[in-house]
Design a protein around this nucleic acid. Structure first.
Lengths: 334, 334
DNA sequence: CTGTTAGCGCATTCAC
DNA sequence: GTGAATGCGCTAACAG
């Protein structure tokens, strides 16, 4: 038999409403009644049905989170941090995975809206100018925050992004300081904000130092190891000149370069220096340890959840946060 | 204004029920009406409210998943695979994290029950004989499957576990074949099935080969790198005799041993050989690459989701699956 | 083919 | 202090 409020009420021969109120410690109800109700509820293992409650209160106390992948150290870290913070603040996270696919992201957003989450956090895969997910959420007037990646075309939306431009600029500058001149860059789609900002940071640093970057030394690798391997491998097949250093848009891309170097017997850092971005947990386990930029993932995740909940509850919040990081040089650079 | 079925019905001046049926392609309704309704729904960006539907149908089309952690390659892999399979079968996953804490697991289960998920999959943290999560789910008659780790005390429950005993036996045997005799084992709590089974596999292989294992050569390390480091470090401080090889209950534990070896300038595999279990993605990135056992995580995850959904829908399913694996020797063993 | 009625579990409002 | 009435959005059973 299902244990719900009616069940308890019938057993106690009181009204269902009294049960509701008693369970909420409503001042209306006599303490003795409250005690009786709670005791029985405990005994029966009563668990409130949130579905019913949500329908009535128009709140679900859940927040939807859409990420491109789970099984990557970067994402699994921010996911876990968001879970931690949400749990502490009394919210449940409904996690969806877009698998780096725009249509899937849209479907996820639809699911979240139909599940009536109170707000949404997206690490976007969008590369197109018009973003349907965004339009839809806007239409439904749900609080929304982009974390990490957001479609570049959307301006008027809350976001929590990393200080990509400045970190990339600084990183490049540190390389230049060490005497590097012929530096290659491997990036992803320019529609994704992180790729754009990091590349601009790189380019600006180079031009500020009056160093030239040939157009064909900016390769496009779609943000993952496999593509990066292919792209750099192809470069090696078609060109004889090796850059002195390669700046990669993230650590996965750097690992792809590692692989290509190993296949072609190019020694890191003797023949070439490599730097990544993002500080994957494996970045200091590979040989040689990878120089990279450590982003404050916990802070970004915490801020995202805190801010979204503030938005949900019409509380004040800081606008458009930029999260810093720290440059870490290891043996992949001479 | 909120777009719901009533809103559409009013606009079209028909009954709400007609709208419901039209949206479901119910044969009752005239095609012309169906078209009109769907067109308007599309135009308005109507998204059904699943909360309402669930309350009415008593089904949520969601399955609850509880895992100890997210930010570990093993867990993030099975999570992602479960998402993949669930999505393909039209179910949503509600993911909860117990953070290796039994009380938290129980709270998660309560949340899932109150969200009225159709079934639950748990990678358990329970170490105690009486498992409250289990009792609760049983009481609520929800389909339940344990994956990977389950409380050893519970017998009559569906589970999907890895072939720990046999793989551990085989692994140990392969070491013995290579001439190793003084072998240490580092394990976790014996209440967790994987620890128990793997240790028994090890012990049996050793005794079958008439090799002795001193009791103080079976260390307890709680399944993670930090504890493993501490435990083995402590051993090194208090003992002079080094084992020829160490079998670790999982790769994290093996990495803790790596760390202790490095701190104490013990060379792997020259001074000591190490094997892990689980095939973390980093296992072949560390130096030297770690010998380990690769478990078929995708299969386990797929089977878990498929089976749970079969249970939910009262369809037949195979009982208590055991998922195999493959032993991979790398440079961490001579 | 369409609509009426009823109910899912809970919470709020208001009257007793 | 207690409870009756109402509605949240949707669906199922039945009637017209």
């Amino acid at each position: 038999m299902k244990v719900n409020q009616k069940y308890i009420a019938d057993l106690l021969k009181i009204s269902r409403v009294t049960v509701t109120k008693a369970l909420q410690d409503h001042p209306d109800i006599a303490i003795s009644t409250v005690k009786k109700v709670k005791a029985l509820a405990d005994e029966l293992g009563y668990i409130p049905n949130i579905v019913g409650r949500s329908l009535s209160t128009k709140k679900t106390n859940t927040i939807g989170v859409v990420v491109p992948k789970i099984n990557h150290s970067f994402f699994s870290t921010i996911i876990e941090e968001m879970y931690t913070k949400a749990q502490a603040l009394g919210y449940q996270i409904i996690l969806m995975v877009s698998f780096e696919n725009e249509e899937s992201e849209l479907a996820n957003v639809k699911s979240l809206l139909s599940m009536n989450v109170d707000g949404i956090i997206i690490d976007s895969v969008s590369t197109s100018a018009k973003d349907k997910s965004y339009e839809l959420i806007l239409k439904h007037q749900k609080p929304l925050i982009y974390i990490d990646r957001k479609p570049r075309s959307i301006k008027k939306v809350e976001s929590i992004v990393f200080d990509d431009y400045n970190l990339s600029y600084k990183l490049t500058n540190l390389l230049i300081d060490r005497g590097y001149k012929d530096i290659m860059y491997i990036t992803g789609s320019q529609e994704v904000n992180i790729c754009y900002d990091r590349l601009i940071g790189f380019k600006t640093a180079m031009s500020d130092a009056r160093l030239d970057v040939p157009t064909d030394w900016i390769l496009n690798a779609d943000l993952d190891k496999e593509n990066s391997y292919k792209v750099f491998q192809k470069y090696l097949e078609n060109n004889s000149k090796l850059p002195e250093a390669i700046v990669c848009v993230n650590d996965f891309v750097a690992l792809g370069v590692y692989e290509a170097c190993e296949k072609n017997q190019i020694k890191i850092p003797d023949d070439i220096s490599i730097v990544g971005f993002g500080h994957l947990n494996i970045s200091n386990l590979v040989q040689p340890p990878l120089s990279t930029v450590k982003l404050d993932l916990q802070k970004a995740s915490f801020v995202a959840v805190e801010k979204l909940i503030a938005m949900i509850n019409d509380q004040p919040y800081e606008k458009n946060n930029i999260i810093g990081g720290e440059i870490i040089f290891r043996e992949s650079v001479k």
